[in-house]
Each structure stands twice: as C-alpha cells, then as structure tokens.
Computed example of a mutant assay.
Amino acid sequence: MKTTARLESALKKLYNAFHNNTLNPECCRQCAVGNILNNMDFWKHLSDSHGDLKLNYVGQIHETLGRKFNGYSPSELLKIEHIFLDACGYKLPLHYKNEKPVNPTDKDILFNGLTAVITYLCELDKVDNVMDYTKLFEIKDDNPKYALSKGL
C-alpha cells in the first residue's frame, strides 16, 4: 500500500510509542500529537485547552501563515489529539474534573485511541485505512480474495 511520507512517519512514531510504553494521553509530550512531533510539547500553545478543537491566537497565526509541523497544520494536530483523547474515553476538553479512564495507559484504551487516530490520518492523506483488516477475510470461490505479502 502506498502512503505519504508524513503518514509513514506518524505511523512509525505511534507504533513505537505504543510498544515502548511511551504513549500517555495525559502528557503533551507522550500523547498522540506529542509523539508525532518528536516528543515536543510546543503544540500545546496552539489552543487554550488540551483536547480542544479551537485554535487560539497563536494557533490561528500559524494556520494563517500555512505552517506545518511534521507535515500537519495546527488545526490537523488539534483534531488528531481530540480524536485520540475522545477514543481513549476522555470528556473533552481535558480538565481534572471531567470524566476520564481509570487507567489511561491501559493497552486496550491506547489501542482504541490509536485506531481512531490512524483512521483519521489515512483519511487526511486519502489512503486506504491501514488498520482495515477486513480484506484479509474476503473470499472468492472458497479461496482468499487477496494474498498476504511475504512480510506477514
């Protein structure tokens, strides 16, 4: 499957963060966007609340100037984080009084968040969802319709 450079980079970073236990929805450096941006937290200054979709003044300036961070615009970054937190079970925007998962670093919770984020990243780049495994089970004349690549 053909992907874009920014999608490939983001997928590798999220995959590594998930498997290296460095994915944490409550940390700006270790959340989905933090990992995509090389564990930097400057992106948190693009909005006033973690998980909010509204760009603040700083975010609007970067957006208007056409700035991209690892290939993503400020509004795309906020949407990525919003999707991640929402799929992990947070009531948004993130606030200590709002509902959140009991164990936010549980692998099942993180997997749900990553699945939602990867779906969105693929949509952004107009690429088939790399998490869609349903084609593996399609059959034609009692045989698999698609063959697995040798790497699997």
Score class of each variant (00 low, 15 high):
residue 106 D to K: 11
residue 98 N to T: 02
residue 143 N to V: 13
residue 128 D to R: 12
residue 119 T to I: 02
residue 116 A to E: 05
residue 103 N to W: 04
residue 138 E to M: 13
residue 28 C to E: 14
residue 68 K to H: 10
residue 121 L to Q: 07
residue 126 K to P: 00
residue 64 T to V: 11
residue 72 Y to S: 05
residue 111 F to D: 09
residue 32 A to S: 15
residue 132 D to A: 04
residue 108 D to S: 15
residue 103 N to E: 11
residue 16 N to Y: 15
residue 68 K to F: 04
residue 118 I to Y: 03
residue 118 I to N: 03
residue 88 C to K: 00
residue 138 E to F: 13
residue 56 N to V: 12
residue 118 I to V: 13
residue 26 E to Q: 11
residue 28 C to S: 15
residue 121 L to Y: 03
residue 35 N to E: 06
residue 125 D to P: 03
residue 14 L to I: 08
residue 72 Y to R: 08
residue 55 L to A: 14
residue 53 L to H: 09
residue 142 D to M: 10
residue 40 M to L: 15
residue 120 Y to Q: 02
residue 90 Y to L: 00
residue 83 I to D: 00
residue 137 F to M: 09
residue 56 N to W: 11
residue 62 H to N: 07
residue 33 V to E: 10
residue 1 M to H: 11
residue 141 D to M: 07
residue 16 N to C: 13
residue 106 D to P: 09
residue 71 G to D: 11
residue 127 V to Y: 03
residue 143 N to Q: 15
residue 64 T to P: 03
residue 32 A to L: 12
residue 124 L to G: 06
residue 7 L to H: 12
residue 1 M to T: 08
residue 56 N to P: 13
residue 101 P to G: 02
residue 47 S to H: 14
residue 45 H to F: 15
residue 31 C to Y: 06
residue 10 A to V: 07
residue 42 F to G: 14
residue 19 H to A: 11
residue 133 Y to M: 10
residue 61 I to E: 06
residue 35 N to V: 11
residue 117 V to Y: 01
residue 79 K to Y: 02
residue 49 S to G: 09
residue 92 L to H: 00
residue 41 D to I: 08
residue 43 W to V: 04
residue 16 N to V: 13
residue 124 L to Q: 08
residue 64 T to F: 13
residue 77 L to G: 05
residue 76 E to L: 03
residue 62 H to K: 11
residue 61 I to M: 05
residue 37 L to F: 10
residue 31 C to T: 07
residue 61 I to G: 01
residue 84 F to H: 01
residue 6 R to D: 15
residue 8 E to S: 14
residue 43 W to N: 05
residue 120 Y to P: 01
residue 34 G to H: 06
residue 94 L to N: 01
residue 67 R to L: 05
residue 66 G to Q: 09
residue 33 V to H: 07
residue 74 P to T: 04
residue 147 A to K: 09
residue 98 N to C: 02
residue 76 E to V: 04
residue 139 I to H: 06
residue 85 L to R: 00
residue 114 L to K: 07
residue 58 V to E: 10
